[in-house]
């Protein structure tokens, strides 16, 4: 089996959510001398990108995305240590602190975004739901986050997103973080009006925007 076939099988294992196949081809990739980062980026990530695209078009649903994420995690448990051992140093991940903001206990949208961010190579700190804004900031400071992401399904929790940005400004931290917001009642226009850096209509767009912002704002 040539390198391209192994990478394709890695991608397919993620698309089909097959954990065993993912682990198997992760090992095969290393045995064949494929650079672990190449296996991650051109195998697993390619598969996950397809999964994200299919979910965005609703060709597949959340359970299939969760299974794909599990398969990817299984393969990463083999490829990441190998990459670190090679000492390439390029595994440094961008960090996101995410949560459903104060007053809201709906978390399916936030969970989808967190999962897709993880699957796209971000290090995600998911604080759960009904998260006070100062907890988001504290965690971001603690882990040295690049992005603070807040979600809500409730109009009555949207003001807390404004409060998050105000508090960052008050504490002189606004320029340190990219702030992204999203969720049912949140619109692109409203996000811009409160001074958020990014917004996504869905999980797929949130990942795309996060990547673009990291490159544009932080040069990552």
């Amino acid at each position: 089996m040539n390198h391209e076939e192994i990478l394709q099988n890695l991608a397919d294992s993620v698309i089909s959510g097959d954990e065993e196949k993912a682990k198997d081809f992760a090992k095969k990739a290393l045995e064949a001398g494929i650079d672990p980062l190449t296996a991650i980026n051109e195998g697993l990530m390619r598969g996950m990108s397809q999964v994200g695209d299919d979910f965005s078009k609703l060709k597949i649903y959340l359970p299939e995305v969760m299974m794909a994420a599990e398969a990817m995690k299984a393969a990463l448990s083999i490829l990441e240590p190998a990459a670190l051992q090679k000492g390439t140093g390029t595994l440094k991940k961008s960090k996101v602190v995410i949560g459903t903001i104060t007053g809201d206990i709906h978390d399916i949208g936030k969970n989808i975004v967190a999962m897709l961010l993880r699957a796209n190579g971000f290090e995600v700190y998911d604080l759960g739901r009904d998260v006070p804004i100062d907890d988001l900031i504290k965690k971001a400071e603690e882990v040295g986050a690049d992005i603070i992401a807040a979600s809500t399904l409730l109009s009555t929790s949207m003001p807390y997103m404004e409060d998050l940005i105000s508090l960052l400004k008050e504490r002189g931290l606004r320029d340190k973080y990219i702030v992204m917001v999203g969720g049912g009642p949140v619109t692109r226009e409203w996000a811009a009006s409160i001074g958020a850096d990014g917004y996504g209509d869905d999980g797929e767009e949130a990942v795309k925007v996060a990547k673009e912002l990291l490159q544009r704002v932080k040069g990552k």
Binding site: L154, S155, S157, P159
Partner: peptide
């Protein structure tokens, strides 16, 4: 219906305004 404000005050969950 859901309101965004009451007496011009933004409604946050769990507040007197809610």
């Amino acid at each position: 219906g859901t309101l965004a404000t009451i007496d011009g005050f933004k409604i946050r969950k769990g507040t007197p305004q809610e």
